[in-house]
Amino acid sequence: MIVPILKIGKNLIISIQIPLTDQQARQFQREVLEEVARTEAFGIIIDITAMDVVDSYMARILSETAIDVQLMGARAVIVGIRPEVAVTLVQMGRGLGDVATALNLEQGLAKLEKMDARKGAGHGS
């Protein structure tokens, strides 16, 4: 696996620790979706604290992955976006779409739980 995926309870925790090439990013997307299907996870958290650059391609892969996971019936939260990365993406006219985000792992897990309480109510708030 290009990025290690941890299963904790009903959720998957995925922490991207190294910069990914475009090809590796596509592999990451594939592997996450396969793992969600295999483990029948309730939700996933993608932690990008270690990423000091998220360009338009990586932003697209991240939001696509989150949306795909939701189409598979699971929940997704992206956590740990750095302030400077957020500013850069917004300035480029790029967002992460309607993907739920949280400041850190703890708040991300809390957000997944909230989604749990309102089943089918969609993502985020």
């Binding site: 475009d22 650059v53 360009d55 338009s56 750095r82 400077e84 990365v85 850069t88 300035q91």
Partner: peptide, 26 residues
């Protein structure tokens, strides 16, 4: 990013430059 940091560009500008280079070289 390293060059920008050595030239004491602030963190946000370092990130802007690194991201711009990522787009262009891609």
């Amino acid at each position: 990013r390293k060059m920008a940091a050595d030239m004491t560009f602030n963190l946000v500008d370092q990130t802007r430059l690194a991201t711009a280079v990522s787009e262009l070289t891609r």
